[in-house]
Write a protein that binds this DNA or RNA. Structure first.
Lengths: 188, 188
DNA sequence: AAGGTAACCGGGGACTGTCTCCGTTTAGTG
DNA sequence: CACTAAACGGAGACAGTCCCCGGTTACCTT
């Protein structure tokens, strides 16, 4: 029932070009890069862009799937290398760093963990939740993480930490500090 | 040396109208409300708007000064009613609620605690920092708050909590929970 | 190999928003 | 009342989003 027919050659070519151009543009100008400009860079008309990617979100997600995959893969890598609690914290740290440094990624990850967000981002949203879920469960089993925390809550809190750190200086220099404030609490 | 001459009557009138229209528009459409539309609602030309408020930030701040004042005043009120530690937490909770519920306020408060933000928001930024400073210092003296925390860091973290809570469902229902996760830490 | 057709392309154009410029109006003064 | 500096306002230049549809082309079929 799904579209059995493969993409026509020119369609696929333009799709790839758009993706490449989008990655460059989002990295340079952030999530609000001009879509028409992206189309121009890719050497296609804006109509073509909007046909392949109906929304900015769709393009954003497509341009960053590989990076999302890298992040989720990193979760399992850390799980093998470190004790559960440390693995989780380290992963959250790297996640926050990526969120801030890769312009445009923040918007994507944000809507990925937003309740009731569009269907378009469900794909990367669920894989992030699964990756977080494995680390969270392991840490809870180990006894270094509260039992009542959902994986998605951890992701949201990480997003909050990234936001707070971003306010500090735009770079991610305060991530480790704010992350440890979160894990340790604010009491002496 | 400052401008001794008072505003011309028509100027003041338009200024007030713009402020009122801005408050309505920001509340309705959020921080990205159309500025030309605000001018139209106020019954003035867009040139007049831009003359009185050169940037969106300037208008945003002017429209919400009273609310900022209410928030800072609330800090002292809570300081009188509750023990320092509880006063701080309660204030942060109310701050987060306001941040989320009053559309447009988030952007303002965000740039108010951003390092190296424009001079335009310094006014409300410093009064927020002072209000937070009083609560923070009292709590630290009481021994219920880490010594190494700066007031502005608390404000940034509160912004992060508001962001995380906003991701959950758009309303502020998770604020109390995320705030207590922050104060208590993530360990069991 | 040629031809038919569904899929695809591209950019023109309508729309919305930002922000400036400058001719016109008006409040306040003497 | 007249004069002037201050303030007004809206047209218009510019940029971005997104749709629409006449023209093109890749991929079948025979």
């Amino acid at each position: 029932m799904s579209q059995v027919r493969p993409m026509r050659a020119d369609a696929r070519r333009n799709y790839e070009r758009l993706l490449a151009a989008a990655a460059v543009a989002f990295a340079e100008y952030g999530e609000n890069a001009s879509l028409d400009d992206i189309a121009k860079r890719a050497g296609v008309g804006s109509g073509t862009l909007y046909r392949h990617f109906p929304t900015r979100q769709a393009l954003l997600e497509a341009a960053y799937v590989d990076r999302i995959e890298a992040i989720t893969a990193r979760a399992d890598e850390l799980a093998r290398e470190l004790p559960p609690g440390e693995a989780l914290v380290e992963w959250l740290n790297e996640l926050c760093v990526g969120t801030i440094q890769v312009r445009g990624l923040k918007a994507l990850l944000g809507s990925a963990v937003t309740d009731g967000s569009s269907v378009a981002v469900t794909a990367c949203g669920t894989s992030m939740k699964e990756a977080a879920g494995r680390l969270v469960e392991a840490a809870q089993r180990e006894g270094t993480l509260r039992e009542d925390l959902e994986p998605i809550e951890i992701l949201r809190l990480a997003h909050g930490v990234a936001t707070a750190s971003e306010l500090a200086n735009g770079q991610g220099e305060h991530i480790r500090r704010y992350l440890s404030l979160l894990t340790e609490g604010l009491r002496p």
